[in-house]
Design a protein around this nucleic acid. Structure first.
Length: 203
DNA sequence: AGCCGGATCCGCT
DNA sequence: GCGGATCCGGCTT
């Protein structure tokens, strides 16, 4: 890995706050990262790696500095930055960003009309704005087509809280594994996942 | 071979 | 605020 991305060799929980303010470049769009979540690998019930290596999550086990892209809810793709040394499956989910260049192109990729702040607000919208597809799973962030430019300096202020949308994650709600730039209008507003009813209440 | 639920988003109310 | 969309991965049978 090239020197600028050496920071990704650490576990995702350390990398996540450092990614705030970093800029992704690619496919005609540049995006400043404003919200992320850390997924801690095989020990983390919320992580795709919790039950070990599979074909889908194989990239998470590879070297840091690559994209792990997955498909969910039958229609959405989401993207992670793989962290920690090869053989260890930690990653940072990219949840929101501010388009700093190429907003017209990002907007063309969307099917619905939204405000600028909404263009990459939410992990699936973020991949649409950047033109990331499932075929980008495993892409090297140091050589493109999507590249990562680390933040010049740490974000002046970082907010933390529980991860969003993670259910059945064995009490990890208690851990502040979500990081965002406080007050930034591009940060996704979604509330914490509320578990679905399992069985009808019997009384 | 089949089932279940999901690191979500959108449109309607 | 809520439910539907829509299909794949991973586990069970």
């Amino acid at each position: 890995m090239s020197a600028p991305l050496d920071l990704l060799e650490r576990p995702s929980i350390e990398v996540a706050p450092l990614l705030l303010g970093a800029v992704l470049h690619g496919r005609g769009v540049s995006m400043r990262i404003t919200e992320v979540e850390a997924y801690l690998g095989e020990l983390d019930p919320g992580s795709h790696a919790f039950r070990g290596r599979t074909r889908r999550n194989a990239v998470m086990y590879g070297p840091p500095g690559h994209l792990y892209v997955y498909f969910t809810y039958g229609m959405h793709t989401c993207a992670n930055v793989v962290c920690s040394p090869e053989g260890t499956a930690t990653a940072v989910l990219l949840r929101a960003g501010e388009i700093v260049d190429g907003a017209d192109l990002a907007r063309e990729r969307r099917t619905t009309t939204r405000s600028d702040a909404d263009l990459a607000r939410g992990p699936a919208r973020l991949t649409v704005a950047l033109g990331i597809a499932l075929s980008d799973d495993g892409d090297d962030l140091s050589s493109g087509p999507i590249t990562l430019e680390p933040a010049g300096r740490p974000a002046p202020e970082v907010a933390t809280g529980p991860r969003t949308g993670v259910s059945g994650a064995g009490g990890t709600d208690a851990y502040p594994w979500r990081f965002w730039i406080p007050g930034d209008p591009t940060v996704s507003p979604y509330k914490k996942h509320s578990p679905k009813r399992r069985t009808p209440a019997v009384r």
